[in-house]
Simulated assay, not measured.
Amino acid sequence: MVLGRGTRLFAGAMIAVCMVLMGPSAPSGLFAGAVPVEAVRDIAPNRVMTWNICNPCEVSNVDRAAEIATYAPQVIGLQEACVRDVEMIREYLESLHGLVYHVEYGSVLRDWGRCGGVPWNPGAFGQAILSAAPMTDRVSVEYPDGGSEDRGYMAVTTKVGGQTVRVFNTHLAQRRQESVRAHQTGVLATEVARHDRAIVLGDFNAVPDAPELAPMWALAADTAPGCQPPSAGTCETTTDWQSKFDYVFLRGLLPLAHRVHPTESSDHHLLYSDVDLT
């Protein structure tokens, strides 16, 4: 028997209900904040997004998926991502919103405290990239010095706007560790410089005019026109503490539009950009 699309979506939604009720990340209200299946929309083919999803936080993965589905980007870079959470977000994006993504991970830490699991098999923690198009040539690099917690970057080759592009996703050392971030940025910039066209997503834990970001500014521009040293005062904040720490750096590409969207699901805002690859 061949099931119709409506039947498959309904079945997927019922499976998601069971996962929510049994999982540790169940929302306070059933599918709180989720967009109904009828609101399925097309993925925006030239849109990229970065989001530090906050971990450990008492946040529903149903709500996280709903936030992403609102903008339906082609590529999403997640930081502070537990593999189990990303798996559930990806499932909800498909079963509740009809959005199908491939996934690659850049985990740098196995952490029971952050990601659960059992002592002999704790959850993997770090970065993840979701892409509507297949991804190839994944690399995952742990920085030689992560600071107070292991940190790193990952990179994949995928399609954005129908064009092939290298996409990076990183999370730099925590605040008040400027010298550590400076070294990390140097490692990242060396790799980004190898590509004529690249998109660099991430939580850099540094404001735009911080000295440690100089290697990135030498290679790429922020998606927000005018947001670069020394006129960094024009940059929109991306965190609950009114700092810009999150970036979509574009190398060899032009921004078309961008948006910063505060969310109750994280202490970092969603940041997305539509890009011109022609």
Results as ranks from 00 to 15, higher is better:
3 L>C: 04
5 R>T: 10
7 T>V: 14
13 A>I: 00
21 L>W: 10
21 L>R: 05
25 S>L: 06
29 G>P: 00
29 G>D: 12
33 G>S: 12
40 V>Q: 15
41 R>V: 14
45 P>Y: 10
46 N>S: 15
48 V>P: 10
53 I>Q: 14
58 E>W: 05
67 E>K: 01
68 I>S: 07
72 A>V: 11
73 P>N: 03
74 Q>V: 06
74 Q>K: 13
77 G>S: 13
83 V>I: 07
83 V>K: 08
84 R>L: 00
87 E>R: 11
91 E>I: 09
99 L>G: 09
103 V>T: 14
104 E>R: 15
107 S>D: 11
109 L>N: 09
113 G>I: 12
117 G>E: 06
121 N>L: 13
126 G>S: 08
129 I>A: 03
133 A>D: 13
136 T>H: 05
137 D>I: 04
141 V>T: 13
141 V>K: 10
143 Y>K: 01
143 Y>V: 00
143 Y>N: 03
146 G>N: 11
147 G>S: 11
152 G>E: 06
152 G>H: 06
153 Y>G: 12
153 Y>F: 15
154 M>Q: 15
159 K>N: 04
162 G>A: 07
164 T>P: 03
164 T>L: 09
165 V>P: 06
168 F>W: 03
168 F>I: 06
169 N>R: 06
170 T>A: 15
174 Q>Y: 14
175 R>L: 14
178 E>L: 12
181 R>A: 05
181 R>L: 07
182 A>F: 00
184 Q>Y: 06
185 T>M: 15
191 E>D: 15
192 V>N: 08
198 A>N: 04
198 A>Q: 07
201 L>V: 13
202 G>L: 10
206 A>E: 03
213 L>D: 05
215 P>Q: 11
216 M>E: 04
217 W>M: 04
219 L>N: 04
222 D>W: 00
223 T>F: 02
228 Q>S: 15
232 A>P: 00
237 T>V: 03
239 T>Q: 01
242 Q>M: 05
247 Y>N: 01
256 L>V: 14
267 D>L: 04
269 H>G: 00
273 S>G: 07
275 V>W: 00
277 L>C: 02
